[in-house]
Each structure stands twice: as C-alpha cells, then as structure tokens.
C-alpha cells in the first residue's frame, strides 16, 4: 500500500504545472525515501528530475517500492479540481491499475475523490554524474523567468556567459539583439532578491529559450533558482521545493543540452 498526504496540496499542483507541458507520460517511483520522477521531453533535448522527500509529507506510507506510470496531463487535469488550500492524499494499493486522489477542503466537510488510470511505461533512466560545475549562479526565479520570456521575443537561443562577478544573457534575431547583464549583489536584506555567482572559470554557452521558458513554469515553487554550467555539458536549472515553514521538501531539476556552432 502506498499513501501520501500533503496538507499543502498546492505544492503538488505547482509541481505538475512545472512539468506537464514538457513531459507527457512519466513514472513516479515511490519508496520509503519519498517520491521521485525522471523523464526526458519527447525530443530528448531536456530532462526533468523531481524529488519529494518522504518526511516532507504530512503522512507517508510505502510498504514496498512501487512505480506509478501515468499521463501527466491527466494527473494535472485532476489536480486542477483541487483547491489551492486543499489537503491532497494520494493512494495506490499494491498491484492496482489506478491511483486515487482525495482532496479535502480546510474547515469544510467537503471531500472529493478522483481516480487516475496507471500505465505501464518503459522507463529509461539516465545516470546523471554528480560533478562540480564551472559556474553556479543563484538568482531570483522571477528574474530568470522574465529574462527568458523577454529574450524569446528576440531569438530562439540565449547565449549565457559568465565572467568575474556577472552573468550575461544575450539573444539575437532578425529584429535585432538583446542583452541582460546581472551582477552579484551585496549581501541583500532579502536573500530571495539576491544574485550570487560562484565561478571557477569563465564560460560561454548557448541554449534554446523554448526549453528555458518551460523550466520557468516552476517559478511559483521557489523564490530563487540555481543555474549550474560547465563547458560542453548540459545546463542544470534547479528549483528547491520548500513548504510554508521553509522546510526542505525536495527539488525540481531540469537539464538542458547545449546548442553548438556547426
């Protein structure tokens, strides 16, 4: 039996909003450690990895590890039926062919129950090496979202370059070009507004803005986003997931293969 209860059900709604347009079908791996998911987009250009730790749930029971394959747009449709303040409970019996979602409104006597069909998916897992990166940047997530949205008006790709204590996002296209330069901020009063840059070596690399704009759909999950870059490897865009108390619940990490000059 698998059962996971989340008082702040909105977190799960936000997680689905952040992945459903990138990945159509995926499997949640549920173990005593928590729930995780890894999937590539259909073009195999990007990969998303989600982790929700067991102790972040308000109740978590997983007697034996289960894989819950599902259509994420179906799950997202069902989660839209839950209110932002609802408690969400996921339940799956061992060897069942569906997952049950129970939504409970706060201070009300209303409960709703939905079922989503499970699917057998051929999951391919990619091993992601845990390596140090040349550049790590932490910045406000809304700023990253804004930059990606603005630059997509100019071109399809953004060139990210980092030198000394600044990071530069540049795009060019038929209409002209655009550049956004961000400098490291002094220790800010509000940590969520700060920009911090740690650089081992300068870097310059290009990425498709279409994917970055998909990743930015995770913005409501976290006030800060972390970008990690090294020469000739995928960019990592990470949003940590915290609950209202600020406790660490897990993360969404997106990996994006670079574009190279032919």
């Amino acid at each position: 039996m698998f059962e996971a209860k989340l008082i702040q059900g909105a977190i799960l709604k936000k997680i689905l909003d952040a992945i459903k347009d990138l990945v159509n079908e995926a499997s949640w791996d549920c173990s005593s450690q928590g729930m995780s998911l890894q999937a590539m987009d259909t073009s195999h250009v990007s990969l998303v990895a989600v982790q929700m730790k067991a102790d972040g749930f308000d109740k978590y029971r997983c007697d034996r590890s289960v894989t819950l394959g599902m259509n994420l747009s179906s799950l997202s449709k069902i989660l839209k039926c839950a209110g932002n303040d609802d408690t969400i409970t996921l339940k799956a019996p061992d060897d069942g062919d569906k997952i049950t979602l129970v939504f409970e409104a706060k201070n009300e006597s209303e409960t709703s129950e939905y079922e989503v069909k499970l699917m057998n998916l051929d999951s391919e897992y990619l091993g992601i090496p845990d390596t140090p990166y040349s550049v790590n940047v932490k910045m406000p997530s809304h700023k990253f979202q804004r930059i990606c949205r603005d630059l997509q008006q100019i071109g399809d790709a953004v060139t990210i370059s980092c030198a000394k204590d600044s990071i530069r996002f540049a795009a060019k296209g038929d209409l002209g070009s655009g550049t956004v330069n961000l400098c490291q901020t002094a220790s800010a009063d509000k940590p969520e507004d700060s920009v911090s840059i740690s650089m081992q070596e300068p870097i310059i690399q290009s990425f498709a803005l279409k994917y970055l704009n998909h990743f930015a759909k995770a913005t409501p999950l976290s006030p800060q986003v972390s970008l990690s870059l090294s020469p000739d490897v995928p960019l990592v865009v990470e949003y940590s997931i915290t609950d209202d108390d600020g406790s660490d619940f897990g993360y969404i990490r997106y990996y994006l293969a670079p574009k190279i000059d032919e």
């Binding site: 590539m40 073009s43 195999h44 250009v45 990007s46 990969l47 391919e124 897992y125 990619l126 091993g127 992601i128 090496p129 790709a157 290009s206 498709a208 490897v233 995928p234 990996y255 994006l256 293969a257 670079p258 574009k259 190279i260 000059d261 032919e262």
Partner: peptide
C-alpha cells in the same frame, strides 16, 4: 546555424 544537442548524448542509461 546552431545545432541542438540531445540530452542522452551526455547522460548514459543507468
């Protein structure tokens, strides 16, 4: 032009 690389060129099947 720019060539888009695939993610599975970087990360091998586990």
């Amino acid at each position: 032009g720019n060539k888009q690389l695939k993610i599975d060129c970087f990360f091998k099947r586990a």
